[in-house]
Design a protein around this nucleic acid. Structure first.
Lengths: 152, 152
DNA sequence: GTAGTTCGAGAATATTCTTCGGTCTCGATG
DNA sequence: CATCGAGACCGAAGAATATTCTCGAACTAC
């Protein structure tokens, strides 16, 4: 369990906002020499604090105009089914995110589709036709925005 | 509405997986000269296909061991309240993501907290005590994983 | 004190970025 | 059928950056 000091947190805050910030600029922002800064970032990566650098795309630019949240309720709650359906949901090309939940809903899946027909086919082919799935409920996503984690 | 050819899509796929990949490596992966590759990426940024580069952090490393989804139902559905509560939810330091939904639930908020006490205080202070909020329902998040958008 | 440890600075090297012509292809046009 | 222009790519070179390495300061424990 790594301890994060003030500088680590500043780095994480900056990198969350812009993962492509150069090491030099990063170093200047936190008041370190580039070499020291790089060592810190490498350490944060190695310790697993930083889990990856992702590029965020506009779904619309990819022709995915329709986003939905699909709440999934399972028939069997044995561990086996839980894992296999989880992997299945994560592997769908339409999937943006998968939540595994406690409560009445077992999974909540955020999907991006081209249009309503695409969504309709998706829910049938990849959700309701699976034997583990008891019931789903689909909600339209009007807007979606992600925030940075608080690092302080 | 920009048209994305095969190379654009390859670039987006690679950058989604690793936003810090160097331009040189990126160029080699798609069979382009670095200069041409850079021009493509710049164009994708300018066209709004790429909306940002984010660093993904492990919530646990930040002492945020407890994640939850909070479904929010509003009292008034006028546009005014809708925007103000949306901004409020997005501005919370605990917020990871905010969905604005159609259906019975108006907002779904993904939050990360230190512990149950933190979550309890959060739901009261930042959710139920707001006048626009009629009712909330909190679900525990056992696991959460994000996928890359299909670019092909 | 002193040895060990951690952390950062600075220099030197390796690598990469970025710009700037130049070339090629392709389609339209005279 | 030749010419022209637009668009896309490549390659080279200077500038900027990343990375490695070594050294020294501050701190700890004994």
């Amino acid at each position: 369990m790594p301890t994060l000091d003030r500088i680590d947190r500043a780095l994480l805050g900056l990198l969350q906002k812009d993962a492509r910030m150069s090491n030099k600029e990063l170093a200047a922002s936190v008041g370190l020499a580039p070499s020291s800064c790089l060592a810190r970032v490498r350490r944060l990566e190695a310790e697993g604090v930083i889990t990856g650098y992702r590029t965020e795309l506009a779904p619309r630019s990819l022709g995915l105009d329709l986003q939905a949240l699909i709440a999934v309720q399972l028939r069997l709650h044995v561990g086996e089914a839980f894992n296999s359906i989880g992997d299945h949901l994560r592997s769908l090309p339409e999937t943006v995110a998968v939540y595994c939940l406690g409560g009445a809903t077992d999974f909540l899946v955020h999907v991006a589709c081209r249009d309503t027909e695409h969504l309709r086919v998706l829910t049938i082919r990849s959700f309701t036709s699976r034997p583990e799935v008891s019931r789903i409920e689909t909600s339209l996503v009007f807007s979606f925005s992600r925030s940075n984690l608080a690092v302080e």
